[in-house]
Amino acid sequence: MTEARYKIVFDGQPMPGVALETVKENLARLFKSDADKIESLFGGRSVALKRDLVEAEADKYLAALQRAGAKVRKEQDVAAGLSLVATDDHPEPATAAAEAAAASNDSMSCPKCGHEQPKAAECQACGIIVDKYLARQAQLAQEAPQEGASNGGSAATSPYAPPQAQVGEQLPEFGELKVFGTSGRIGRVRYLGWSMALMLAFLPIGGVILGSYALSDALAGLLTIAACLALVVASVCIGVQRLHDMGWSGWLWLLNFVPVVGSVFALLMLFMPGTDGPNRYGPPPPPNSRAVKVLAWLIILVPVIGIVAAISIPAYQDYVMRAQMGDAASFEQPAEAPTLEGESAE
């Protein structure tokens, strides 16, 4: 009885999960042909890649082509007497297929995606050239900062590790403080402390302005305008930096001039916490100093002192008025004095 003969048929479809371009490259390398000639196999019609094969040989070709990513099938070859003739343009693929089948016992793992496959120069899953990928990773590992030196050399740099290149600008741990500037950030406590410092700074300036009235009204007016402008500029700067700390635009400071809304917005600026870590306006502000904390407590005590003064001053004035009225009553004219004996005898 004649042994059954088989052929390997290819419909131009890749295996599931394998890119079409990857299949074309693998077949071109397997058949030792160029990509233009391999392209004719993907025309959408069935092509018999190999004929007149015994079952063992057909299984060997089938496994090799499937590992290359081609969706092939084994069919019984009725016309066993017919076969493909090798030409200069289409060399005989049996030798390359046999070599691929012989090397199928050796497997490898892709260094990029971890795909298990026979040893090859290219990954069948992700399509990388293994040697080039390893060389590139080793180059990146050498160019990256030596992290082992910073931590005492406890961990060695692996050539398979992802690159540790710095992405973006390296920000400092804390931002720079600038009273007269609209860049940077300040927190709630520093906002209160700087506001109190402005109030205390303008007390002597106010005294100078009052004293200048004795010299010239025009000079006093110019000093008043200059002092008011400086106060407004400083208030705007620290207000904008406070908004930056919350992650808001500095233009929102203009909401302070809107009736009703401005009162609520001022409370938000006082009590709303800032963002943790860096935001789009820069790194976080430095820790608050002791002087800033003292000034912040002082400005908090100002309303309390004002309330106490509003209650105690009228009470003190009433006390003083009552005391003055009591003193005036004690100085009224006394009763008629008694007469002496000598005067009565007369």
Rank of each mutant, 00 (worst) to 15 (best):
M1Q: 11
T2C: 06
R5F: 01
K7W: 04
G12W: 03
P14Q: 12
M15A: 08
V18S: 01
T22D: 12
A35M: 10
E39C: 00
E39F: 00
S46P: 15
V47M: 08
L53R: 09
D59S: 06
D59A: 08
L62P: 00
R67P: 03
A68Q: 09
A70V: 01
K71C: 07
K71R: 12
K71Q: 13
V72E: 09
E75R: 01
Q76Y: 05
D77E: 07
V78Q: 12
L82K: 12
S83E: 12
A86N: 09
D88P: 06
D88Y: 05
D89W: 01
H90L: 09
A94C: 08
A97V: 15
A97T: 15
A98C: 08
E99I: 15
E99P: 12
A101M: 14
D106L: 10
S107V: 12
M108H: 04
C110G: 09
K112H: 10
C113P: 00
H115Y: 04
K119E: 14
A121Y: 05
E122C: 00
C123E: 10
I129S: 12
L134A: 12
L134H: 04
A141C: 08
Q142Y: 07
A144F: 01
Q146K: 06
G153Q: 10
T157H: 02
S158K: 01
A161L: 05
P163E: 01
P163W: 00
V167W: 07
V167K: 08
G168S: 02
E169C: 00
E176V: 12
K178C: 07
F180S: 11
T182E: 04
G184K: 10
I186E: 03
V189S: 08
G193M: 02
W194D: 15
M196L: 08
L203I: 14
V208A: 15
V208W: 08
S212E: 14
A218F: 12
A220K: 13
L222I: 15
V232P: 11
S235C: 10
G239N: 04
V240I: 11
V240D: 03
R242S: 00
L243M: 06
L243V: 03
G247K: 09
L255K: 09
P259Q: 07
S263L: 13
L267F: 06
L267W: 06
L270H: 05
G274R: 14
T275D: 14
G277K: 10
G277S: 03
G277L: 03
Y281A: 00
P283Y: 01
P283I: 02
P284Y: 02
P287T: 05
V292C: 09
V292R: 00
V292D: 14
V294Y: 02
V304C: 14
I305Y: 04
A310C: 07
I311D: 07
M321I: 13
M321Y: 13
M325A: 12
M325V: 12
A329Q: 11
F331P: 02
Q333C: 04
A337G: 02
P338S: 00
G342R: 02
A345D: 08
A345I: 09
E346C: 00
